[in-house]
Amino acid sequence: MDVSAELNYRLIRKAVKTNPALLDKPEAIQDLSRQMLRSPERYAQDAEDKALIELEKAVSLGSREIDDELDAFYEAAEGMKPYVASDLPRLKQGLQKALELDPHCYDAQILLSLVETVSLDHAIQKLDNLIPEAKEWCMARSEAIDEPTEDPFDAVCLRPWLRLEAKIIDLLIQGACYREALTRSIAMLNRAPQDAQGIRYMTSLILARLEDEDGLNTLDARFDHTGNAWMHIARSILLYKLGRIPAARRATLGLANLCPGLAFYLVNPTYTEPYLPDRPYFTPGTSQESLLASYEAEFLIADTPEYIAWALSLEGFKNAAETFHEPS
């Protein structure tokens, strides 16, 4: 989620709703959009929009706070000192501020639930209980502000609800409840077929984990076999798990050739910034995509302990891993 871009979109939608004549003036809209991006505070009149401004600040603070936490953790380990985890007070404060402005800021609610949670089950339960309210609220706001759209993700006011559903899927995957995650993922793909959120990426990894080749083929066909790093990983590991070694070999060499840096990142798990609030945008076909995919596939690699050693026995994969230079 790009909070400022989403706020911008919402403000433009509201401006157009107030002044429909704007629709015939794309240059005016562009101009307005630029001004809104420069000074959102000027244009955010409603509490829900002000809340998004606070959310953006909170996310930014939160990223730095988590970095500080990690530094403290490693320093303590090196110095053999005790480490006391903070409960990320600056992030919490920022999120609470957003919620004071708008209790229906579901993106803030999601993050706050995760920061305050005592267990994964607790977080899943809490967010699951939030769905009916979030859906109802978002639909009402969408009716007031958005134009009707075919794909619900194109209606900006529906996105918080859709992100809530997606976050629960992420948590189910973390909890190794893959079939439940898969059922919900397919439901999401049916609900929002253009899949702007990229639900299909983790779905392919889940299908590999459940060794469901038919499911993976169906998913691949659904998106016209347009490859991506997640699908390459899923295909390679699935075939390896099923013992179909010649096919796995081909898939793995394909992965190494077609996804810049993917072989390297699979062999060398690399630090990735925590997703706040969710997977960052990436340019398809770049090593950035490979980094994110390899990070998200860690659970699958860990589940298949001999896979990396086997992949490294393939010369093409080994070369790709050894010759890749990370972008600076």
Partner: peptide, 8 residues
């Protein structure tokens, strides 16, 4: 089982 090849 231990190496993650469940169907096998």
């Amino acid at each position: 089982y231990m190496c993650g090849h469940y169907r096998l």
